[in-house]
């Protein structure tokens, strides 16, 4: 019940956001392996407004993390960004020089890793790991001001100032995750990507960390992309949900629509696989396995597993189109072509 209220409240927020802050245009990434070329991100388009919160879901290997890395321009060999643009706040990141991209990270777009485990340098104090980011981006700021700023950032994620002087191994998993968030918001970026920020934490800490992200996001008005497996946690936090499969968006819908009446057959299968009170104890999977990225099936990548498959699905890739207000889907069930 509580969840539903939150969802309703969030829908009203969307109206305020007007200016696109993040635009992805036909972003395409492939990995060159021994076994051939694997297409990890297959032409992704996305537009997000200021302050919008998007949840990104999909199976392992569906391209969620690749998309995050591509946006940060952190795809490493044997991977490559083949084409496409990442525009943050009117700057095309793909056109920046290496040097400018270094500066864009953290100040325009920042990444919060799954930090509970290993994302902090074990031999440096927490403070040093905030300070080095400051020194890299605002080298002219006086040292004491820098330090005050870092401590404020730590305090804004509910950490005590003395964490500044501690080593990572002296912190709990939740505290380490908060440090990562503090680093992520240090320079008030326009876009924050949080890659499964709670996956290694216990449920109570998960909730606290999500609330922290939610609060600091509101404070700095950033656009957030939350990557995760946990649809329940996501439902309480994001405005929109994007479903990815084999490096393509299958559907993007407001969170309420996604949960109540998912459009794409894959999204339907995903939502059905969630446990709820009615089908308690029944575990529903999705029949079939995800195809290899080395040789995607022709047409719609989901067609071999799709219960509603049509002839056209095997031949042509469905376009990713708006089919209702605020909802986009890549499926012939919803295009004019299929209906005619």
């Amino acid at each position: 019940m509580d969840t539903m209220l939150n969802v309703a409240a969030k829908e009203s927020d969307i109206g305020q956001a007007t200016k696109p802050v993040l635009e992805l245009e036909n972003l395409r990434v492939s990995y060159y392996t021994d076994a051939g070329r694997a297409i990890a991100l297959d032409g992704v388009d996305l537009t997000l407004m200021a302050g919008e919160k998007l949840g990104l879901v999909g199976e392992s290997g569906s391209g969620k993390s690749t998309m995050a890395l591509a946006m940060m321009r952190m795809i490493k060999p044997p991977g490559r960004i083949e084409e496409g643009r990442v525009i943050v706040d009117d700057t095309d990141l793909t056109a920046l020089s290496e040097q400018d991209m270094l500066r864009a990270r953290l100040s325009k777009i920042s990444y919060i890793p799954q930090g509970a485990m290993n994302s902090l340098n074990p031999v440096l104090r927490v403070g040093a790991q905030l300070m080095d980011a400051m020194k890299a981006h605002v080298p002219d700021m006086p040292k004491d001001e820098m330090q005050a700023h870092c401590i404020r950032s730590l305090e804004s994620v509910d950490l005590k100032a003395n964490v500044f002087k501690m080593f990572p191994h002296e912190l709990s998993g939740g505290m380490k995750q908060r440090v990562c968030i503090a680093i992520g918001i240090l320079l008030k970026p326009k876009v924050i990507i949080a890659d499964e920020p709670t996956s290694a934490l216990d449920v109570v800490t998960q909730r606290q960390v999500m609330e922290t992200i939610d609060r600091v996001q509101k404070q700095i008005g950033a656009t957030v992309i939350l990557i995760g497996h946990d649809m329940g946690l996501m439902a309480q936090f994001v405005d929109k949900v994007a479903v990815m499969y084999t490096g393509r968006f299958m559907e993007i819908s407001p969170v309420r629509d996604m949960f109540l009446k998912p459009a794409h057959p894959y999204a339907q299968a995903l939502i059905r696989s969630l446990p709820n009170l009615e089908n308690k104890g029944v575990f529903q999977g999705i029949p079939g396995i995800a195809p290899s990225l080395l040789s995607l099936p022709g047409g719609c990548a989901f067609h071999p597993r799709c219960p509603f498959v049509m002839d056209i699905c095997r031949e042509q890739r469905p376009p990713f189109e708006t089919f209702q207000e605020n909802r986009q889907v890549a499926c012939y069930l919803y295009t004019e072509k299929a209906r005619s």
């Binding site: 952190m74 990270r105 930090g115 290993n118 080095d132 980011a133």
Partner: peptide, 14 residues
């Protein structure tokens, strides 16, 4: 391959 090196790059360190 460690996460902390990766995160350091995400921080935009030189």
């Amino acid at each position: 391959g460690e996460d902390y090196v990766n995160f350091a790059e995400h921080k935009g360190l030189g």
